[in-house]
Nucleic acid binder design. Structure first.
Lengths: 342, 342
DNA sequence: CTGTTAGCGCATTCAA
DNA sequence: TTGAATGCGCTAACAG
């Protein structure tokens, strides 16, 4: 293992000089020495011991990417296509910025705190964290944190946040369904606890009814179970006559695609018998049959925004907008159609 | 930031004693002191400075997860559903073993070497690495490495490897297609350069023909372009009359699903006009219409096997089987049917 | 322009 | 049973 001391010995200079060359403090080093040292550094394949760097700077070049995990949701949320896309984008952005990625799935705020402390993390990106947790973390952590797709309690704290125009997207989709003549529209979400992505989308859903001079159905909010079997039972109930709804607006494409697939198997025609739409536009949305009408978001832009904001925070540059709301757009494909006349 | 020294001061003992308590060297510490120190450690939320630990042990508790990336393939391979599933599994397994995950996508062997050196990695898991690279890495790295889904040049080196029975799986699928009466079967892969996953699967394809007393078509190996537009052009060519093949055996579900979708849009009936099958059984395979007939692999088992083997290597335990071949099975769904009589 | 030195937090050896 | 001393590799302040 090449060390600075080792390089210095080979070059016949002191460790400090090597360190200066490595850090580009070339003003302090003669060109001849600089080139000689550089050659040896390259030749010996020198790589700094990041442990030593951490120790002396009290900071590492690691960015923690924290994936919030439901306590009981078994193994892995990473295979969610949305999550994997954002992780992929974050990886390439953070790497390009010269940092290293530590990936961790957890549901425990203390674990996040411990991770940041033990590795002296340069910063963190937190995905899909509920508000109690983000609040506790922001209050007690030393490193800069950027939250992606999180909503926060109104507790007067400052959060650096990248999210979507969830309310507006859901508003647009609901307005579109209303324009097709649907009135019995269900908003389907895991849980619309306030504040959260789902609650913001639910707000948009209700606003669309309100602005159309209509009341949202009293039973318009439907909880999607996490358990697959329970979910399939729910799909069956939604399909059986008399159909309780004419359109299902899922807050996540994943479930929408699953529902389309399952209901097609049951002989329900989508969108002939039932319109089904989603939110997110994950890449399989256009592979489903019929292709899913959904709300499109730009996940790559989201990853870039998150990593860009984090880097500015790390470098203590000013962040003009610390609550970015990325736009979304309605992506009309085939899974929603005009409501049948009653 | 709580340090050992800090804890020691609070407990009125020496740093050494605190260290002994933390490491469970309880034989050297009186029970009273032990409990007092433990209480303070918990209260102060002590977390060791991993930089210092790295420095003194010359080893970190980080496992590198390296995702091989085609040099020109743009951003992110992580969103490949197979890759995201295996990363998710690795994350949970490695975390459970008490290690941290450093995720990195790269196509550069020197970068891998530098990563291992600079972070004193405890071990590495390398995904889908071509043989030239694995050979160079294994020769020059200090840390244990487990390769997942890699094939190796016959260079006499020892590789720790987890992979599938690729040859057998492709054999089984091809035999199945032959039993349906297909003869004009194309084997569709990005590149069947030897040695690789694709070449092993291609071997299985040819063996099935051989054992049936048949010759594989001379034009049986078809290269799938990486570029989407080129791929779509190829699908069109495959669909136009006279159809060059009656069945397409894709070496990856991803392309099979894409082809089914695209060709359905062109009015080609699958499997009526053309049988299409895949390999891997990614989760969207059962969402496609028709559902994809494919070769199923157990990705979770693969992740567990990889992490388990790596942990044994890290702890210098003996590894009985350093070249694990996980079984696969034919998953017959709907996308392949009997060949039409000519 | 170059070298000497101190100290970051921890594990470990040796001494008490 | 406890503590003092050492050194891991590096950066930065300072001295030459």
């Amino acid at each position: 293992m090449a060390t600075i001391k080792h390089i210095a010995r080979l070059a016949g200079v002191s460790p400090t000089t090597v360190s200066n060359v490595l850090h580009g403090n070339t003003a302090k080093v003669s060109p001849a020495v600089r080139d000689r040292v550089r050659a040896i550094v390259a030749e010996e394949n020198y790589a700094p011991n990041q442990g030593a760097v951490m120790l002396v700077r009290n900071r590492s070049r690691i960015v923690g990417v924290i994936l919030f995990m439901e306590p009981r949701s078994g193994s892995t949320a990473i295979e969610d296509p949305f999550v994997s896309t954002i992780i992929g984008t974050l990886e390439s952005e953070i790497r390009a910025a010269g940092y290293f990625i530590m990936l961790r799935a957890t549901s425990d705020k203390d674990e996040v705190l411990r991770l940041a402390a033990t590795w002296k993390l340069a910063g963190l990106v937190m995905l899909c964290v509920p508000s109690e947790i983000s609040s506790a973390i922001v209050r007690r952590i030393g490193s800069p944190v950027v939250f992606v797709d999180c909503y926060f309690a109104d507790d007067g704290q400052a959060y650096n946040s990248i999210r979507l125009d969830d309310e507006g997207g859901a508003y647009g989709m609901t307005a579109y369904l209303l324009s097709l003549g649907h009135r019995r529209i269900a908003f389907m979400a895991n849980a619309a606890d306030f504040p959260s992505v789902d609650s913001a989308r639910y707000d948009g859903y209700r606003r669309a009814f309100g602005e159309a001079g209509l009341d949202a159905p009293g039973d318009g909010l439907v909880t999607v179970p996490k358990d697959l079997d329970e979910r399939l039972a729910m799909y069956r109930a939604l399909a059986s006559e008399p159909r309780p709804y004419s359109a299902l607006f899922f807050s996540a494409d994943f479930y929408a695609v699953e529902a389309i697939d399952y209901l097609s198997g049951l002989g329900v025609s989508v969108p002939g018998d039932l319109s089904i739409v989603g939110f997110d536009d994950i890449w399989i949305a256009r592979l489903s049959r019929p292709r899913l009408t959904t709300v499109h978001q730009d996940v790559v832009a989201k990853g870039k925004a998150a990593s860009g904001m984090l880097m500015r925070l790390i470098h203590k540059e000013t962040v003009d907008d610390s609550d970015v709301r990325l736009p979304v757009r309605l992506e009309i494909r085939e899974s929603a159609a005009e409501a049948k006349a009653p």
